[in-house]
Design a protein around this nucleic acid. Sequence first.
DNA 1: TACCAGGTCTGAC
DNA 2: GTCAGACATGGT
Length: 281
Amino acid sequence: MFESDFDAKYFDAASTLDCGQTFRFEASRGGYIVYSGGRACRLWRRGERTVLRCEEADDAYFAHYFDLARDYAEICGRALSCGIPFVAEAARAGKGIRILNQDAEETIFSFLLSQNNNIPRIRMLIGRICAALGEELSFEGERYFAFPRAEKLAQKGEGFYFSLGCGYRAKYIAAAARILAEESAEGYAALPTEQLREKLLSLPGVGPKVADCVLLFAYHRTESFPVDTWIEKVYREELGGTLKDRKKIAAYFAGLFGEAGGYIQQYIFRYERERRTKWQG
DNA sequence: TACCAGGTCTGAC
DNA sequence: GTCAGACATGGT
């Protein structure tokens, strides 16, 4: 096992995991176990440090996954000095958030399940899919299931995903799996952002919001600003916005924050959701 | 019971 | 191009 530690001020496990960008983690022994594809790591707090432990072979993978090479003090500083009090508050509260670099396939399927759904239920559905189709692996002596590859997902049809509780999203999972089994979502990374967005939008069940989430949480296109029901509430109630179309609201924020938009979106999302929900699964 | 959750698709204008 | 309604499910 390989251990390294980081300033917790700009890398906080709870903030990073609990802001709805990944759905595969669990609380464990005062910290968290985080799963990505077929790998796992442990995160916990030691004083003012966040400690990361994983297999030595996965060290570089998780360093990239948690975006550890980037200067988040500078990013947070931009949000703090943007001149919008609500945004500055959100950044102060969420400065420990990092934008993950997740596996593209896993992110696409996860956010296909996210539409008109809530985070605890998304986590549950993904857990069921992994348990049903994922390879059985172990970390620290405990078994877990990998997120199945598209080829594996494509072996099952709509009825199977419906039976797992995916509801009307079942047909999107089945159809997207058939497409992604044939072409590589990792390969999409070579595309410039607008072409990549079009590619994602061509997948069944992927609309502008899901595309923005995948652009941000898998491909690190930080000019993306996903607008969901929480962001829309903030836009209307805190910023006094009047636009109705979410695509236009996203464009408004993108114009405001540019390449820092994705980071700031996460500060806002978590801050708003935290203060409006007492607890979450 | 009605409304909500990290929305998207379809069919009517 | 814009808009209303449908869509599965479980929690409040």
